[in-house]
Design a protein around this nucleic acid. Sequence first.
DNA 1: ATTGACGTTTACGTTAACGTAAACTTGTGG
DNA 2: CCACAAGTTTACGTTAACGTAAACGTCAAT
Lengths: 131, 131
Amino acid sequence: MERTFSISDLAREFGITSRTIRHYEDEGLISPERQGQRRIYSARDRVRLALVLRGKRLGFSLAEAKEIIDLYAAPQGETGQLRTLLGKLDAKRALLEEKRRDLEVAIDNMDRYAARCRERLVELEAREAAE
Amino acid sequence: MERTFSISDLAREFGITSRTIRHYEDEGLISPERQGQRRIYSARDRVRLALVLRGKRLGFSLAEAKEIIDLYAAPQGETGQLRTLLGKLDAKRALLEEKRRDLEVAIDNMDRYAARCRERLVELEAREAAE
DNA sequence: ATTGACGTTTACGTTAACGTAAACTTGTGG
DNA sequence: CCACAAGTTTACGTTAACGTAAACGTCAAT
């Protein structure tokens, strides 16, 4: 038997509220099984939730996150489907790549700036020591 | 004389509306000079705008973007100020670094998945050719 | 049998980040 | 002089992503 999770299990683990998880379900991002009314989350559901949250951290809307995540569950029956899937993957990858470049530049700029600050600090400390 | 820009100059250049730029001003992200009522944007204002937009692309709120950008204009008079500035820079850098890791993993996973798809495609094509 | 702890649906409320419209001012060319 | 393009303020509207509250079901433990 695979392990399953309750809604508050996942909420606790990921530091979000149950409401948020239900909202993601409303938006079609997760579709847990049910035992009567209760939602039962599988390991796969948990992975999808993690992907959604990472998408959000990276600045994607829920709709964008869904587009990306759904690619991982896309049908791959025939070569045509596989080819369009590969095309979409390529497009999304380009988006991620763009963010990566932005991020590299941002980090780099910040590092340079911090380095200048440290130089300036050393200079000031030398001056203070001279008094 | 340094070059200046009108609000629609910048809107055009960055593909946003004037309303958006004014909104950023309302939120304290940009503070252009005025000639009477008209806003006059300097090269520095333009840079700040670019930083705001990059921040947004990376998933920061306007408030978060402001916190980061304001560090680049922070006072550096005395050693105390410099030390707290360096501390804050370090904290923000950690945030960026976290995003970078997330992004690396996301790209890597997507690459692996695409590779598996391509393998599968090759296999299917071979089967088709055999008919 | 009742009291929590946990879950559910339904529905209105809130915040951020703008969109949109109205009414007005200010140079600039014909 | 007058239209027109570009800018301004003021203010209400909209969308996404949940928050919050009410009203109810269910099951294990006291």
